[in-house]
Design a protein around this nucleic acid. Structure first.
Lengths: 199, 199
DNA sequence: CTCAGCCTACCTACTGGTAGGTAGGCTGGT
DNA sequence: ACCAGCCTACCTACCAGTAGGTAGGCTGAG
């Protein structure tokens, strides 16, 4: 009985609620929070709009669930980078590679950027969550910079957080550019950053 | 007659078409291209939606007019920076100051960023224009970097375009962040960039 | 007369949402 | 075993307002 239960989770289909979240996360990252609707979701999943409302009564409820989703997604990504990386720079390389893969191969933006696109239309509850997600990401990269500076992997720097900021935002911005122009400048930009911070 | 015509331009009200463009530019920079409608415009200007359609039959027509507007806006900005600046770094400082003023004081994003927010929903004709606007901006900053490198204002660098990319995208990204978190990290990020490229 | 610029009235399709309902499953009391 | 009560999950039908857009008409300046 217990052995049977253990084997089952792998095969179990996603609940409707989880399907809604996963699809919404894709849409968020493709078109932003205002760029998809309950009708889109219902059509994609083959259920009615009212059923979507059943699980997420208002769109802000869905938005908050997407913030939870983003937090989990970050946590998983970061664990993976921390576990697999061979150096601090390699952590950043993995971050960049993942971001590039999502953006250029899958047309999926960073979820935080996607929320920012519609910042003026977001309710305060979502803004607060986005703010926290921002800092979650920035804290991790700041720590990577700090560690890299301390072990002399990166040149001495008095402000690892500003360095992290430079890294994250140029990476994301160059990925936006790459969507229209190709990935060449993106790669050069990341190489440039490496050149500027390594001895 | 000629003297009378010369004195008049200062007092002349904007044409309805120009009013539509100006207001649309504000809306583009606040909410993105998909984030405002002909109804919004008509309500703001006190005309009907059909009148807006008269001037811009389809939204893509308005979008292209906004690309023209953005080109002019860039040209004016760049002329001003080139005319007033006391060094290459000062050109970049003026760019940053202007961007910060627009973003934080007036809640107006860079129009290019605003178009990118809705990239997946833009018709190809607008995408081509956005692509050209991107390169117009990047070309100018690249030239500033090149000049700065050549006159030893900035440290030697083999790739001024990638440096320009790092500058522009980190500036814009940090301004997004600043909208939720305040301008502190934005300023530190720009200071960090200065620190990294100056001898 | 012509026509740019505006209007009213209308269209289809969509937006987030509401109200009332059905169906199937679970649970605990009898 | 039966079943009332409850729950979850879905449905149909509807709401008010809005999205980009169309068709036909009026008006005043040139």
């Amino acid at each position: 009985m217990n052995a049977k239960a253990k084997a089952a989770p792998k095969i179990e289909p996603l609940s409707t609620r989880q399907q809604i979240i996963e699809y919404s996360a894709d849409m968020l990252r493709a078109n932003g929070f205002e760029g998809f609707s309950y009708l889109d979701i219902s059509r994609h999943l083959g259920i009615t709009k009212a059923s979507v409302h059943h699980h997420f009564p208002k769109k802000v409820d869905l938005g908050l669930a997407l913030c939870d989703w983003t937090q989990d997604w970050f946590e998983q990504g970061i664990s993976h980078f921390d576990a697999k990386a061979t150096s601090n720079w390699n952590k950043l390389e993995r971050y960049v590679r993942a971001a590039m893969k999502h953006s250029l191969n899958e047309q999926k933006l960073c979820p935080i950027s996607a929320f920012y696109s519609d910042l003026n239309k977001l309710p305060d509850s979502i803004k607060e969550r986005v703010k926290a997600l921002d800092d979650y990401e920035l804290d991790w990269v700041t720590q990577v910079m700090q560690d890299g500076i301390e072990n002399n992997e990166f040149t001495a720097n008095q402000n690892p957080r500003a360095l992290a900021s430079l890294f994250i935002f140029s990476c994301k911005g160059a990925l936006y550019y790459a969507r229209l122009h190709g990935k060449d400048l993106f790669q050069q930009t990341m190489k440039q950053f490496e050149h500027l911070i390594k001895p």
